[in-house]
């Protein structure tokens, strides 16, 4: 038997339900409004607390999964010159963390570790003209409840003028590209001592580059240092290991948190000598260079992220 459309109550008759108890509904609604107001107040007046809470919840869903980049890549394909398949590749890359392989076997440190003295912190040179090139951003007042950022004593300028000049020259051909939302080309002073994770030839610097894997211009969020497989690399600064694991894009990698909103990542390793939760010291041997994940040869992909923004590590340390 065939029902007439007008009698199809599944489509037309479902909007008659009324709330039973008026006062109860009003109370529930009031509670919800209070909740919303609370959230708005917390976000507006206690950014520190918001950061702490986000720092606990968001790493679960955000780390390795750059939703914004993935969604943006999809949007970009609609009008264009990037093919759909390449975009899908981009998205898989952005969601690389979702395809985490089996847990990495954390190799124990060899019996007799190679003798290593931590590299010295770079001396702070005062180079006035650089300040005109790189505006030193305003220092955020408070990050979190416990992590209070002290005012910097004196402005610290990029370590070598050569690094800045090379960077600017390198980026010039890409000046028509919009800077990714989570990257910054300015210099933000760090409030702790740090050291270069390795010494070697920088094969692919931070910034826009011609991507060897997708054959197109992409922003490179880290610095690649070409080294032999097995070369030890060391912790940038004191901190805690957030992740020591493997994923499709980064291969075996380590993510360290140094406090003050600063994270560093060491990717494409062949061996990892630390575990999530470990505390490391500046210059501690944490792994060996390799070519795991999406990589065209043995190198260390080193990322420096300050308050959610990727920064050029070459402004802080010299790899050569």
């Amino acid at each position: 038997m065939r029902m007439r459309y007008g009698d199809d109550r599944r489509l037309n008759g479902r909007n008659t339900k009324q709330s039973g108890d008026g006062s109860l509904t009003a109370l529930r609604l009031f509670a919800c409004v209070i909740l919303l107001a609370g959230v708005i107040v917390i976000r507006a007046f206690f950014p520190g607390a918001t950061e702490v809470m986000r720092a606990t919840v968001l790493p679960m869903i955000e780390e390795d999964m750059d939703y914004r980049s993935a969604v943006t890549a999809i949007g970009e394909t609609l009008s264009g010159d990037v093919g759909f398949l390449e975009a899908i590749g981009d998205i898989t890359r952005a969601f690389g963390g979702a395809q985490t392989e089996d847990a990495v076997e954390v190799t124990t440190l060899p019996e007799e570790p190679e003798v290593y003295t931590p590299l010295p912190s770079p001396p702070a040179l005062i180079l006035p003209p650089i300040e005109e090139v790189f505006a030193v951003p305003e220092v955020p007042v408070e990050i979190g409840l416990l992590l209070t950022r002290p005012e910097p004593e004196e402005p610290i300028v990029p370590e070598t003028p050569a690094a800045v000049a090379v960077f600017l020259a390198h980026q010039e051909p890409f000046s028509y590209h919009a800077l990714p939302w989570n990257a910054a080309i300015s210099y933000e002073p760090l409030q702790f001592e740090f050291t270069a994770p390795v010494l070697g030839q920088v094969s692919s610097p931070f910034g826009f580059r011609y991507d060897p894997i997708i054959s197109g211009v992409r922003f490179h969020f880290g610095t690649d240092i070409a080294l032999y497989t097995g070369t030890p690399f060391y912790a940038f600064a004191d901190g805690q290991v957030i992740y020591a694991r493997a994923c499709v894009s980064f291969g075996k990698y380590i993510l360290l948190y140094h406090g003050y909103g600063v994270y560093t990542r060491y990717a494409h390793a062949s061996a990892l000598y630390v575990q999530a939760g470990d505390y490391v010291e500046r210059g501690q041997w944490i792994g060996r260079v390799g070519s795991t994940g999406e990589s065209t040869g043995p190198h260390l992909h080193f990322e420096l992220r300050v308050n959610g923004q990727y920064r050029n590590a070459e402004f802080y340390v010299s790899f050569g």
Partner: peptide, 18 residues
């Protein structure tokens, strides 16, 4: 997406994706 390409705006690409 097309407007984003024309204006070079990443936010518009983001909107397109969303």
């Amino acid at each position: 997406s097309f407007l984003g390409r024309y204006l070079g705006s990443e936010t518009l690409f983001f909107l397109a994706g969303i």
